[in-house]
């Protein structure tokens, strides 16, 4: 039995498919990442899991319950943090928390402990009288997370929680998610930042409304089929041009400080020295590289692009 089961889910807007036939399941207590660029269909999928969008096909189950047949039961065990900050900016931190506690009818007895725990967890205690609109981006996200946790949900769903906040707050947010995971909360989180995939137990790479691959981050990296080299040099553009002409090159991707090149056949040192001469020593460095999730994403979605 899994916490969330998605079976052949489809959703279309007009005649355009936003999500076309997605199936996967998330185990209990798992931190599951939905990774993909903007427009991949992540938000549509997540909103449907939260019972906000009825599917056009397929079934979504949480705790074995069909989401659309048990809406009220689902909503009581579900915490959801939407992509955009969506709390009341003109209410204080405290009032927002109390408001959602009341909507979920958290008993007064346990509310005090819960609030204390959340304040401690989010470090928002000193700001509890401040209006939500006056918080920094990172603190807003922590408040939104706290509000989503006020009723102690079994399943927590976050739509791009780290979007647009600084690296430190991002790291803090992930640490908070790891803490929550230890409390046996099942977490589904989406992100467009590929490097955040490593924070998850398992990830699904989503592209153009489909899951292109699924597994733990290391599984995906091991599935990368080609030897990958990180190449640097004095000038990237002639280098890229040069490698594009080589028959054994499979793909070339420009990164900020280097070029990632995958080869259909693994080149040996003689090849590299040969190339170095041929490029008039523009080529300076080459190392065999273990692929990142971003490399995997680019490789696995190659055919559909």
């Amino acid at each position: 039995m899994d916490a969330i089961q998605i079976d052949n889910f489809q959703k279309q807007y007009g005649s355009r498919y936003a999500v076309k036939g997605v199936s996967f399941s998330i185990h209990f207590g798992e931190l599951f990442g939905l990774i993909g660029p903007d427009g991949a269909g992540k938000t549509t999928l997540i909103r449907s899991v939260c019972s906000l969008l009825p599917p056009d096909g397929g079934i979504i189950k949480i705790n074995e319950m069909d989401v659309y047949q048990n809406i009220s039961a689902i909503r009581n065990i579900l915490g959801y943090m939407p992509q955009h900050f969506s709390l009341y900016q003109d209410l204080s931190v405290e009032q927002n928390l109390h408001f959602f506690a009341d909507l979920y009818q958290v008993p007064q007895v346990s509310l005090k402990d819960k609030l204390e725990q959340l304040y401690h967890f989010s470090r928002l205690e000193p700001f509890k009288k401040r209006k939500a609109g006056a918080l920094s981006g990172g603190m807003k996200q922590k408040l939104a997370l706290s509000c989503a946790l006020i009723h102690t949900p079994e399943v927590l769903i976050l739509d791009e929680p780290t979007y647009g906040i600084d690296p430190v707050s991002r790291q803090e947010l992930w640490e908070m998610l790891h803490t929550l995971q230890k409390e046996n909360i099942t977490i589904l989180v989406s992100t467009a930042y590929m490097e955040e995939a490593d924070q998850c137990d398992r990830i699904a790479l989503m592209h153009q409304g489909k899951i292109s691959s699924l597994g733990s981050p290391s599984q995906l990296k091991n599935a990368y089929p080609y030897p990958l080299y990180r190449v640097s040099g004095r000038d990237f553009f002639p280098l890229k041009k040069f490698f594009l002409k080589l028959p054994q090159v499979h793909s070339i991707q420009l990164f900020g400080d280097s070029i990632h090149i995958s080869f259909a056949q693994k080149p040996n040192e003689t090849d590299w020295e040969h190339w170095k001469k041929k490029t008039n020593h523009i080529l300076t460095e080459w190392n065999l590289l273990s692929p990142s999730i971003e490399d995997c994403f680019i490789e696995f979605t190659r055919n559909s692009r």
Binding site: S72, Y80, P82, S86
Partner: peptide, 13 residues
């Protein structure tokens, strides 16, 4: 506009 409606809709309200 602010998006709070979405947050409200996932509550049992």
């Amino acid at each position: 506009e602010v998006g709070t409606l979405e947050q409200l809709m996932v509550t049992p309200l």
